[in-house]
Design a protein around this nucleic acid. Sequence first.
DNA 1: TCCATATTTCAATAATCCTTGAATCATTGA
DNA 2: TCAATGATTCAAGGATTATTGAAATATGGA
Lengths: 118, 118
Amino acid sequence: MDQRQALIAFGALSQETRLHIVRMLVVSGPDGMAAGAIAEKAEVSPSNISFHLKELERSGLIAQQRESRSIIYTANYEALGGLVRFLMEDCCSGHPEICAPAAEVAACCTPKMKEKLQ
Amino acid sequence: MDQRQALIAFGALSQETRLHIVRMLVVSGPDGMAAGAIAEKAEVSPSNISFHLKELERSGLIAQQRESRSIIYTANYEALGGLVRFLMEDCCSGHPEICAPAAEVAACCTPKMKEKLQ
DNA sequence: TCCATATTTCAATAATCCTTGAATCATTGA
DNA sequence: TCAATGATTCAAGGATTATTGAAATATGGA
């Protein structure tokens, strides 16, 4: 993830509806969610959700694929990981005080890490 | 860091000049930089830098303190770490695929981690 | 083909954000 | 006190982003 993409991604996450969408798609995993289902859960109009989904896709944080009549959106884990990495490494120069709390979280989430850190 | 603050912080980082400011302040450490010095390095006008510094301070990512005639800005490591944590934990539900790359970065930056992971 | 469903696009408006330059405020030293 | 320095505030304008509802597009089934 380069700076240009990171700027767009930060902008994408700076809007409540869009942050909500990303959270839902991360949880829903590889199956993703249809645009309509997202709109319903987020309680926004179809045209509005479409606007925000487009913005998120432009940022690379989510991807779409048509499935029959529905358009299924999924979280792009690689891009999200890339953004975390950008924030820690590029933006914060890998500063220990900033990265340490992140390391804790990472340890809790990645089984291998957890093992080694015990 | 709660969602409200995270939204503001993401917005703060979504602007090129402000991202540049944060990077400079992280590098400059606890000594920080005076507003004028920041403006000069970022090549923007005093009033414009003031606008962006205010926005960053509102986000909590930087702090200010007067020192004689100058106003010194410093990066808020705690807030930056909190944002990384929010992105990994709250926003991305601690998803391993997203957190793994972050763990690598963290390992490189925090001496204790590095030791344990070798 | 025709209709229903799922979604996007478009145009208009509202809201927010960014930039600029002039004016103002705070601090220090002569 | 006065002038100089360092920085902020303010108002105006331009640019971008968000919301809305109506119209258009794509797909699948009767």
